[in-house]
């Protein structure tokens, strides 16, 4: 365990930026913008994943999270820069993750600032007939989408929701069921006409209620205390949260079918659910900066998908159709975990 943590924190998890997905829109295609885009793509911080045909396509890519940073170059970028010596580029940032947004902005400005003169010279050298008044200047303007005031609470509220629900549902459920085994009451419950799986389902109901109350408190606190707006549909926020609660409850049941002491249940919940939820769900560390293998590991953490969905619905305020894939993934988790625990379930000791 300590070895894993040291390695994870030392190498794998970093708050540094890596491979941030960038989408660009260039209204007029020219050699200067292309070179600049190549420069950005070459850096380890950014990967150009999308060359938008129009501004709407770029916005759409933003909405379904295929890109995290958007760059919109000015109309007639090259001719403007050659005549006036200055041109502008707009940088769109995703305010749902403040860490990434601020760092991305910083690095982008840096790259643009350092490479613009070099590029200008290169272009002039390659084609001496072109007139380019040196020095040139590119003026980036940034706009923070979804979170214009740059509040960090916007970032952590979905994360905290994911964490609380994981904690309450998975840990408390598994511990409460395993406690029956430990105390021997399970033995008596088994020797009764009640279907044992019903007993376990019944044990989860109070935790479902508690989680629903927790959810309500968290959302109310987020809205009224932290002033996080629920920009999207509240109904879907609640619906998807309830779905996630069921996923977590089923995880708790699964654990309870596998272990036989409360300590084991707590350990497994903490190590297999809580830690990965904290570290790998993208709440503290950007998933893109992780080594590929950890990115794959993060796929199997339900909280990751839930937090993504909450960010999309609460902060970005997109309609549910943009995160229907996340809902489908959560639902698949629910089905898979429930069937696994039914399969693993023994109605004997």
């Amino acid at each position: 365990m300590p070895v894993v943590m040291i390695v994870l924190f030392g190498f794998a998890l970093s708050t540094e930026l890596k491979n941030v997905k960038v989408g660009v829109y260039t209204p007029t295609d020219d050699i200067f913008t292309r070179k600049l885009i190549d420069r950005i793509g070459e850096s380890e911080y950014f990967t150009i994943v999308f060359d938008a045909p129009d501004k709407e396509a770029l916005d759409a890519a933003f909405l379904n999270n295929t890109i995290e940073v958007g760059m919109i170059f000015q109309d007639n970028f090259y001719s403007t820069i050659s005549h006036d010596g200055r041109a502008s580029v707009q940088i769109l940032l995703d305010g749902t993750n403040m860490n990434i947004a601020q760092m991305a902005q910083f690095y982008l400005r840096n790259i643009i600032g350092t490479s613009v003169q070099e590029l200008a010279q290169e272009v002039v050298m390659a084609d001496p007939e072109l007139s380019l008044n040196l020095p040139v200047e590119i003026k980036p303007t940034t706009s923070m989408l979804y979170n214009p005031q740059m509040k960090s609470s916007f970032n952590f509220v979905p994360g905290v929701m994911g964490m609380i629900l994981t904690l309450v549902c998975s840990m408390m459920t598994s511990v409460s069921i395993v406690r029956e085994k430990e105390r021997g009451t399970m033995e008596v419950l088994l020797v009764s006409p009640v279907k044992p799986f019903l007993v376990i389902l019944a044990k989860t109901i109070p935790y479902f209620v508690i989680s629903a109350l927790n959810l309500a408190t968290t959302i109310l606190l987020a809205i009224y205390l932290l002033q996080v707006p629920v920009s999207g549909s509240m109904l879907w926020v609640v619906m998807i949260s309830l779905l996630y609660i069921m996923v977590s409850l089923s995880l708790g049941i699964l654990v309870s079918t596998l272990v036989s002491t409360q300590q084991e249940a707590i350990l497994i919940s903490a190590m297999v659910f809580l830690m990965p939820t904290l570290l790998l769900s993208g709440m503290l560390f950007p998933i893109e900066s992780m080594p590929v293998i950890l990115q794959y590991v993060s796929y199997i953490i339900p909280a990751r998908w839930y937090i993504d969905a909450m960010k999309a619905l609460m902060i970005q305020g997109v309609s549910v159709k943009y995160c229907i894939d996340l809902v489908a993934i959560l639902f698949a988790f629910l089905v898979a975990i429930t069937s696994l625990s039914v399969y693993k379930y023994k109605d004997r000791l």
Partner: peptide, 13 residues
């Protein structure tokens, strides 16, 4: 299961 009564060795209530 419905027709037997079982009292385990350990107090299990």
């Amino acid at each position: 299961r419905p027709i037997v009564g079982y009292m385990p060795g350990r107090f299990s209530l």
